[in-house]
Design a protein around this nucleic acid. Sequence first.
DNA 1: CAGTATCCCCACCGATACTG
DNA 2: CAGTATCGGTGGGGATACTG
Lengths: 230, 230
Amino acid sequence: MEDRGGYGQFCPVSMAAEILCTRWTALVIRELLCGSTRFNQLRRGVPRMSPALLSKRLKELEKIGVIVTAPRESGAVEYHLSPAGEDLRSIILGMGFWGQRWVESQLSLKNLDPSLLMWDIRRNLNPEPLLPGRCTIQFQYPELPEPQRNWWMVIEKGKVDLCGFDPGYEINLLVRSSLRTMTAIWMGFAPIPHELAAGRLELQGERPIANAIQKWLTLSTFAPEPRRVS
Amino acid sequence: MEDRGGYGQFCPVSMAAEILCTRWTALVIRELLCGSTRFNQLRRGVPRMSPALLSKRLKELEKIGVIVTAPRESGAVEYHLSPAGEDLRSIILGMGFWGQRWVESQLSLKNLDPSLLMWDIRRNLNPEPLLPGRCTIQFQYPELPEPQRNWWMVIEKGKVDLCGFDPGYEINLLVRSSLRTMTAIWMGFAPIPHELAAGRLELQGERPIANAIQKWLTLSTFAPEPRRVS
DNA sequence: CAGTATCCCCACCGATACTG
DNA sequence: CAGTATCGGTGGGGATACTG
């Protein structure tokens, strides 16, 4: 009879926790904060969440007023954060910075996922140092089986495209490392020059593009945060 | 095979959410931030959480490094936040302020609980305007059944005691209202003068103590936050 | 593409009782 | 006071299929 989901407390921390601390919800909001608006965009950001559950969460968040939906001509809808949802940004960012400060890197690096990593890199890649013209950068994780081993990033006219298949263009730079190394670099755990020197990161191709890697390969938002655990 | 509880993402938001967004965890941390250190103190702050689950959560949080335990001579332990746990304060507070800004008051006021309210009032009551000597204030919620109707707050030597039974002292002030009204006042939804004028809040007893109610009855930490929903 | 529907299983949670 | 033990229920997640 009692509401099974809730905490039964009037305290605003409790009310917020009922919304924010439901399974997957924080990550869905993170995706929306990063700019995803379509169902399958959101799915790419939370690949291990079932579509049924994602759909349910989106409806709940809309009902609560954290999300607003805008119908599109195709019949599908776009999901956007309401002002209340946008106001969660500092909390979600706070959680990320806390995680960066206090969660052991070994623990984070147990959750390797090339498609998530590449999706994140694409989202933050800075095309400006790679202009003008088209630039194709191939990422290779030699230890992975075929469908996950190679990724191509095509930068053209300031737009970044990510492919899981060879787009057929000339490769301007090949970036080769283990998935673990690239993830550690992305998280800010390992500096690029250090990994290059140790031979764990290899760059083959045009020197100017290789030399500019620290300019175009923007690291995670949380990478600059000083760590407080080993 | 896969870890059922986690999200499988290296993102620090995800790592933090795995910790913070487990059921009840945010509220347990809130209690620790408020200064509770003993098992049964914590239970009073999360009365609808089973002791088994509280015990489990405390162990998990200790293992993660958010809590440290200190044994006491009686054999039981004291729970304290580690630096990592203390560093969660801004996030928990952020959640509370967000809730205060955006959660409809009607929704919060569906979760009335006199013992939680009185426990909160006790924790924040300012004894300074009630000095010197002993002062006994009775709170009465006439609509409630007997074991929850009357509460006594005894202020003496700067210390505040809460009783669910008549301590036998002379009552210096009787505060009478519905539980809903008192909760709304505490949350900052309804100003005390307004509720007095409307007859929903009655004060009987010594005038100076009644007149000073806005000095000793500190409202919730979140009460001053401007609301952004009706 | 953008979801909805269904089935099954199981880990987590709630409730209650119990113990040193 | 400070927890542990036990048991039954259920919501979440995987799998799969289906619809407009």
